[in-house]
């Protein structure tokens, strides 16, 4: 985040949300997000998008009888 702080923030978006940055890096991003609505809008969007991805994959129903068929198949071939 030197010459172009927005570009720097964009490049750290994913590790920031994954919580793998150092404290110093997080503080630098937080400082930038407080004064830059361009970047903070995009960070908020990314977070919401991840939640949407996760929930649409997790809410998909497992087929009826899935675990029962799995048990049966495993005990047949045990």
């Amino acid at each position: 985040m030197s010459a172009d702080p927005c570009r720097g923030a964009e490049s750290l978006l994913q590790p920031y949300l994954d919580r793998v940055l150092t404290e110093a890096e997080v503080a630098r991003i937080d400082g930038h997000l407080q004064e830059c609505s361009y970047c903070s809008d995009r960070y908020v969007f990314e977070r919401s998008l991840r939640t949407a991805v996760k929930s649409c994959c997790s809410e998909e129903p497992v087929p009826d009888g899935f675990v029962e068929r799995l048990r049966r198949r495993c005990s047949d071939q045990a």
Partner: peptide
């Protein structure tokens, strides 16, 4: 990483709310 948002912002003023609702 801003590509999707930027694309959506071209057609929608408030992408973070509107678009995610439509997604």
């Amino acid at each position: 990483d801003y590509y999707l948002y930027n694309r959506l912002a071209e057609s929608t003023p408030q992408p973070q709310d509107e678009v995610l609702a439509r997604l």
